[in-house]
Nucleic acid binder design. Structure first.
Length: 262
DNA sequence: ACATTGACCTGAGAGC
DNA sequence: TGCTCTCAGGTCAATG
């Protein structure tokens, strides 16, 4: 779930729910998700503060506090946020709970404990520390930057797209969709791509990610010519009805249309 | 430099 | 019903 589009949807959700309310307490229910942080420190840093704004880089969500520190959220494979009112039950697998003085709560939910929460004084420095490449949807990330990011590798294009140090935000699911829209086989070497292919791929990156956000990252709402709703065994290409192939590429199960992606 | 594998975690779903 | 097996949208380290 949590690739760039999902995290952007979470960011907007946080914006429309949990901003500008005083934090009463924090409850960490799985200590392992804290990065360089203890529950006590988190509580002391957050208590009495408010969330003022948000940012996102790749799959990372940042929420700025009114002392200009930032909370960092990473959602692993299964994470999401849920805002709810006093009296309602916290969702299952709530790993951290932020309670506000207005009687509402923001739950950080992970089924598998692969996500994390951190604090940082500065988004840029955190991004740098993680070694993340440019955010795939950043307006300043243009075709030339894209070509630059894919330079100097002999790996498959699938692997290069998912490499967060090259470009931040694309994971297994959306790399499949991007490659389908660009009509490229996931096994193609990144270094083999000519200018036309690189341009098509770049367009696909921007188009797929922004369309996914517009669709609330919900495959059921995506355009009819998208692969994602058919990304399952025995699924068929939405264009030619050929049965989708699936195989492990770059360590991840990948789906593609053998007719359209050669 | 690459690909591959296993670890980290937990649960859903399939198959028996 | 209940057991076992496989698999899952991410990342990291170790290995070949």
């Amino acid at each position: 779930m949590p690739e760039l589009p999902d995290v952007e949807v979470f960011r907007r959700y946080l914006n429309s729910t949990a901003l500008h309310q005083t934090i009463r307490e924090t409850d960490v229910r799985a200590q392992g998700i804290l990065e360089d942080l203890t529950p006590t420190k988190l509580q002391s840093q957050l208590k009495g503060r408010q969330l003022e704004s948000t940012d996102r880089h790749g799959k990372y969500l940042f929420a700025r506090l009114d002392n200009d520190d930032w909370i960092v959220f990473h959602f692993g494979m299964t994470g999401f946020l849920r805002y709810f009112q006093n009296g309602q039950q916290a969702p299952g697998h709530t790993r951290a709970l932020f309670s506000f003085e207005n009687g509402y709560h923001l739950a950080f939910v992970l089924q598998r404990k692969l996500g994390k929460i951190a604090l940082t004084p500065n988004v840029r420095s955190y991004v740098k520390k993680q070694g993340l490449g440019p955010d795939a949807l950043d307006r300043d990330f243009g075709l030339e930057d894209f070509k630059e990011a894919l330079k100097g590798t002999r790996s498959s294009i699938k692997s290069a797209l998912m490499d967060q140090e090259r470009i931040a935000g694309i994971g297994n699911i959306y790399s499949d969709e991007i490659l389908f829209q660009a009509r490229l086989s996931p096994r193609t070497r990144a270094s083999q791509l000519g200018n036309r292919s690189l341009e098509a791929l770049f367009q696909a990156v921007k188009e797929v990610l922004s369309t996914a956000i517009d669709s609330q990252a919900d495959p059921g709402r995506m355009p009819g010519h998208y692969l994602l709703p058919h990304r399952e065994k025995e699924g068929r290409c939405p264009i030619c009805q050929t049965e989708m192939k699936s195989e492990k590429i770059a360590g991840r199960t990948s789906y593609y249309c053998p007719h359209h992606q050669k």
